[in-house]
Simulated scan of single mutants.
Amino acid sequence: MAQFTGRHALITGGGRGIGAAIASALRATGARVTIVGRTEEALRQTVAAGDADEFAVCDVTDGEAVARAFGEAAGRGGAIDLLVNNAGGAFSAPFQRTTTADVRAMLDLNLMSCVHTAHAVLPGMVDRRYGRIVNVASTAALKGYPYVSAYVAAKHAVLGLTRALALETARSGVTVNAVCPGFTDTDLVARSVDEIVAKTGRTAEAARAELTAGNPQGRLVNRTEVAAAVLFLCGPGAGAITGVALPVAGGEV
């Protein structure tokens, strides 16, 4: 239960949902946990609940802000050993109504955030010859979905980045992997349900049924199940696992 004692973990998008579940799981197994996000109140609540040690308010689409926040976090809590890139978001529209600005926004939030954070932590990890980077991608990194083309493209790019960095760091003691959750019981999915209801007039139950129809288990994934996959990939027993995309999706992919 103390496999991460002495390790400093940083989780982006750590104030709620999957990120908060990952923070709680890592802290419960001994890690010092810093969470990063844009909403201070959510971050404060997660720290107050005992699921993280400290927080930093930071827009992860801003490379300079990331470098500054990560440097300050390392100064307070020690070098960052474990990085979990959980920050992200989706945008829904038919492709013909998806603008280039929409695509760039999805790339900034889902892909460039991972680029900025990797730039911030990789030099130190390579120097120390130890590190774990886990990118929370999505089943949208492994397959297509209609009406979220910009999001799907961005998540596919996250997986490509994961595989490339895994090869570049393969002999350095650093591993780089991705977890790919299906539809998970989070605020993001709740908002998706609300959007389906608003656009189609269907009931919330029918909207949730539509989202879970692709999962052979017929349910939403639990955020703690995603956290368990991240814990495994961060753990000492996963040192020979790098460049993988681990689906947490009930058999969907």
Rank of each mutant, 00 (worst) to 15 (best):
Q45F: 04
Q45A: 15
T46G: 14
T46Y: 13
G50I: 02
G50T: 00
D51E: 12
D51T: 11
D51W: 08
A52F: 13
F55I: 13
A56Q: 14
V57P: 08
C58T: 03
V60H: 00
V60Q: 06
T61W: 05
D62N: 13
D62L: 02
A65E: 12
A65H: 13
A65N: 12
R68Q: 14
R68N: 12
A69D: 06
A69R: 05
F70K: 08
G71C: 08
E72T: 14
E72S: 12
G75D: 05
R76Q: 01
G77H: 15
A79C: 09
I80G: 03
D81Q: 11
L82E: 01
L82D: 07
L83E: 06
V84I: 15
N85G: 12
N86F: 02
G88Q: 00
G88N: 01
G88S: 03
G88V: 01
G89W: 08
A90D: 06
F91A: 14
S92N: 11
S92Q: 12
A93P: 10
A93M: 02
P94M: 11
R97G: 08
T99E: 12
T99I: 14
D102I: 05
R104G: 06
A105W: 12
M106K: 14
M106C: 15
L109G: 13
N110G: 14
V115Y: 04
H116Q: 10
T117G: 02
A120E: 00
V121C: 07
P123Y: 11
G124M: 05
G124E: 06
G124H: 03
R128A: 13
R132A: 11
I133G: 00
I133A: 08
I133E: 02
V134S: 10
V134D: 08
V136S: 09
S138P: 06
S138A: 11
T139M: 13
T139H: 07
L142V: 06
K143M: 13
K143H: 09
Y147R: 10
V148L: 04
S149R: 04
S149I: 03
A150P: 10
A150Y: 01
V152A: 10
V152F: 02
V152P: 03
V152Y: 07
A153Y: 07
A154N: 12
K155N: 08
K155W: 04
H156V: 00
A157I: 03
L159A: 05
G160P: 06
A164H: 09
L165M: 10
L165R: 00
A166C: 01
A166L: 00
T175S: 14
V176E: 07
N177G: 03
V179D: 00
C180G: 03
P181V: 13
G182N: 14
F183D: 10
F183M: 08
